[in-house]
Amino acid sequence: MSTQDLLVFDNVSFSYNEDDENPSFAVKDVSFSVRKGEFLVILGHNGSGKSTLAKLSNAIFIPTTGKVFVNGMDTSLPENEIPVRKNVGVVFQNPDNQIVSSIVEEDVAFGPENLAVDPKEIRIRVDEALKAVGMYERRFSETHRLSGGQKQRVAIAGIIAMRPGCIVLDEPTAMLDPKGRADVLNTIRALNKDHGISVVLITHFMEEAVYADRVLVIDQARIRAVGKPREIFSQREMLKECGLELPDTAKLCDKLRDRGIGIRDDILTEEELIAEIIKRSGK
């Protein structure tokens, strides 16, 4: 384990029915680590164990066997629970289940208040966090009047205000409209790039994996593949077996190859495809 590793899963298995004669495992023999400042995307079909991983990452669940370490702290030790949660914050899918206060800035202050942060310091952190997610102008708004995307950004601000080294987001855009989705994704990318926060993004949208540093594919409770987005999305058979697909641009490239256009097979973004078309057309 390197000192650069913020979050480490060491041979982790987790069962919801460990006392049964034949326990079934939601997570089985999983080992990986998240480096400082890394953007890691986890892909996998429904029921593959992704959400269980999220809950194992900050001591909501404790591994049945194996260990999870946050900044070197073993999450299974009760005395580590609070420091672990200070370091790794989790944002879930449904924005309505994560808002606790009726006013935006009070909601964001809830986390640091629970950590007994000094009130003056809370003021500073709340303002910073709201600016980071682009919700500072709405700090006095009532939370129930916000759109889904705005609520998700407030939930993310609530996590940032605890100053974690790592944020884990479990399908944060599944319930959002296109603008809400784009706003939340831009926020997540900015936190990673500009504030150096490590991000673990769990998603069903392949497009969201394109800009990751690394992608982890989970299939039936186990890690099926790890690699850079290009490496992962070049394994078309593996993706299909795992119930996944290609990002839209790569799908379009496959269709071009069907039409006899020998286009490179590692194109993932719109910009790359357009550059390739311009190059090939000789314009």
Partner: peptide, 19 residues
């Protein structure tokens, strides 16, 4: 749609239709 877009780009690049 993906099919229509592929048709358009293929014809820009002088390719054929779906094999």
């Amino acid at each position: 749609t993906v099919e229509a877009a592929a048709d358009q780009i293929a014809s820009l690049l002088g390719g054929g239709t779906a094999l």
